[in-house]
């Protein structure tokens, strides 16, 4: 199944904005509503838009499933690695070893309502990125594989 040229051009134009919005949601997860799951889902929805606009064969030539699988595994390894790194540094598993440390993402905040600062929250942004990568890859690969099941039937 192949959509018309208008739809494809539209999806081409839309995709960068959806992508940027998704990554905004991921990166500001600790300040505004959102986070890894939500942002990853938004990016994956954008990918779904592209996949729907083009035919499966064209998308399959564009994106390799192995790369998406690698991306998904990589996100998860980053996620669990952030937890394990604390253990190597002498803290318990999943201890937030970056929070209030002054280094990367280590600024403190004043309690109470405030506009917030991006460079806070310890390893939470790292985990947001990891989860965002994982959800993006995972949901896209689910759609691709399910479409592969449809297309072989010739429907």
């Amino acid at each position: 199944m192949r959509m018309s040229k208008i739809v494809r051009t539209g999806s081409d134009l839309m995709y960068p904005f959806i992508f940027i919005f998704g990554w905004y949601v991921i990166m500001h997860g600790h300040l505004t509503p959102g986070g890894g799951f939500q942002g990853g889902a938004v990016v994956a929805t954008g990918a779904a838009l592209v996949i729907v606009a083009y035919s499966y064969q064209e998308v399959n030539a564009m994106i390799k499933k192995a790369i998406l699988m690698f991306q998904e595994s990589g996100g998860l390894v980053l996620f669990i690695g952030a937890g394990l790194a604390g253990m190597i540094l002498g803290f318990p598993f999943f201890y937030n070893w970056l929070a209030n440390s002054g280094s990367l993402f280590g600024m403190s905040v004043i309690p109470g309502p405030n506009p917030g600062e991006l460079n806070t929250a310890g390893f939470l942004p790292l985990m947001n990125i990891a989860v965002g990568t994982e959800v993006w890859g995972g949901l896209t690969i689910v759609i691709l594989y399910m479409l592969s099941g449809v297309e072989k039937e010739g429907i």
Partner: peptide, 23 residues
Amino acid sequence: QEQIATNNIVTTVVFDYRGFDTL
């Protein structure tokens, strides 16, 4: 907010206090 230095408490709960669930 003071422990994790996060403004979004939901994210704090999701990734820190209940981070293992999220894994």
